[in-house]
Design a protein around this nucleic acid. Sequence first.
DNA 1: GAATTGACGTTCT
DNA 2: AAGAACGCCAATT
Length: 115
Amino acid sequence: MNKMQDINFFEKVYRVAEMIPYGRVTTYGAIAEFLGQKSSARMVGWAINKSDLNRIPAHRIVNRLGLLTGKQHFGDINIMQQLLENEGIAVSDNKINDFEKFFWDPCKEIDKKLF
DNA sequence: GAATTGACGTTCT
DNA sequence: AAGAACGCCAATT
């Protein structure tokens, strides 16, 4: 039976992911930390894997080094990079340039009380 | 139902 | 400094 009041871990991840602003990026770990489960960054990536790419801007989520580790899941390896560059984020050698500059930390930017 | 798997991150060697 | 090991925990096999 479903606990309808209780939002799934997946659903939480989606909510945060949807809030990532255009032209910014964040990390799996940051989302996990925001959700209060610091060590389950893996789950975040996994949730997104199972998510609907039409709904979630998954290309704005990278690992903590700014590497496009999930590009393999976009069908075509180039899509993720293209989407990022389309938003003004330069990517070279699988890595986001000036990653810290584009990094969007949900802990800082989102009011937890909104959740 | 046990074992394996992950779009990760930290810690230990 | 670089690589291996381990923790995380839901879903899949």
